[in-house]
Design a protein around this nucleic acid. Structure first.
Lengths: 250, 250
DNA sequence: GGCATTTCTTGATTTAGATCATCATTGACG
DNA sequence: CGTCAATGATGATCTAAATCAAGAAATGCC
């Protein structure tokens, strides 16, 4: 009996403390039970494990449950572009809904776990539960807004502004998850930060050093501390003006 | 009687020659009739007229019917980033679905018209017509994939590659609309092309001249002719490898 | 525990594209 | 039709960030 309850706990949206940030947001208890019927837990991912790869058929959407997942695309001449770093409660795989096949690849940056929503079952539930359809639309709208802001950051901002924006966005998202906003671990390498922001690893490293010298941050390997948030956020003034959305520009 | 028929023709998806590229794609005749009940035609837009502005409540989604519409966001320190140029059959306003308010602004680049889908009515119809929900998901997935590719282009490609990618994408989209793929008019200024691609107007102008010298294109003011498509497309090798999606990277 | 590999930092140099500066066209408008 | 403003082309110069080049530190592996 205990085992059954434990099992149920592990795969249920109703009992998940991320529910309010995640796919089930806005659902009634009855509606969440319907969603619970389709959600599955995937085996834990280790650093470097792929959740899916570009070209795979879209079998499922995924919610990050713990850890962090990087999405990236690659061009046919070998360039790679990281699209985002996804934290618990965030949904990945949405880009695959165009052609029912993934156009990004998703890889774990550290030991991570995710919840799996088999795609056809999920869309069937959406057809039955209007509130879930609304939430899907909201999540996809969020992804589009997020990319709009990232585009602005990469296309119009200096290297310092890009990195300040990246750090304060991560900080905000950690706070929303109930973690410290002032001290956290970067699960991605300097190389990955640079790729994501359209900079080289050397530039990222130099700007981290510069921010440390100015005492905006303290950084030790992957552990970062925000020391002077106002100065850091002053550098992000270029963020999109819609403050409600500012979390998206990670 | 004639007048009534004409009126009906003007606002009906069932009679629209863009239906297969646009929101009603994949709907049966009966389903299209349901969509026809909510679609409205907006008054024509003149060059510079806004369809909506960042911050406006999301009252509707829009399909471009004729002409071309530019979407852009602005940061709170005055930077502006053009997100895309939208042609007939393409849907705009999707980013607003996160918070029920537009986070982009939409402005006509030339005399244009659009079809209006009042948002709450549209989502209600989606709840009744599964095929329409599927199509909405596809369209939003397309927008996400499009932005992924644009991000790659802006972040990783040289100025020449960006412009070659821009031109061949426009060309492809014109062909899909049944227009010439080899001769078309650019409805946007050099300034706007530069803003979109993360380049200055001078760089855009210089690269157009360079492409003309190499006889890749002929350009006269806003009129452009593709002379050497293979060379031009050779420069786009950096496009995302998923060839099905290549149209998105405009 | 020690060696090898990867990741990161920092300095020197280069460069693609930005900025600055004209000038030429084009188009709008009284 | 002529003036004025906006748009575009092109050359000269500058600069932010890339590239090249060592080292240093951390991590993984036997």
């Amino acid at each position: 009996m205990q085992l059954v309850d434990l099992h149920k706990f592990k795969i249920s949206c109703s009992n998940c403390n991320l529910a309010e940030l995640c796919l089930p947001r806005g659902l009634s208890n009855d509606e969440m039970d319907e969603l619970d019927k389709v959600v599955r837990q995937t085996r834990p991912l280790h650093k470097g494990d792929h959740l899916f790869r570009s070209g795979d058929p879209l079998s499922s959407l995924y919610a990050v449950r713990s850890g962090s997942i990087k999405l990236y695309i690659h061009s046919n001449d070998g360039d790679e572009q990281i699209i985002g770093f996804y934290l618990p409660g965030e949904i990945i795989g949405l880009d695959g809904m165009e052609h029912n096949s993934h156009s990004c690849s998703a890889v774990a940056l550290e030991t991570s776990s995710s919840c799996t929503f088999p795609y056809t079952q999920l869309t069937d539930v959406c057809k039955k539960i209007p509130a879930l359809q609304d939430q899907m639309f909201r999540l996809m709208g969020r992804e589009i807004s997020y990319e709009n802001k990232l585009l602005l950051t990469i296309s119009k901002k200096s290297a310092e502004e890009r990195i300040a924006t990246f750090l304060s966005s991560l900080s905000l998202r950690f706070r929303q998850l109930g973690f410290s906003a002032d001290e956290f671990k970067l699960s991605m390498s300097r190389q990955e930060i640079g790729n994501y922001l359209g900079l080289t690893i050397e530039t990222v490293s130099r700007i981290f050093s510069r921010f440390q010298k100015k005492e905006y941050i303290a950084i030790d390997r992957k552990y970062i501390q925000i020391l002077d948030r106002p100065s850091l956020e002053g550098l992000c003034k270029g963020n999109s003006s819609d403050s409600k959305n500012s979390s998206a520009c990670s």
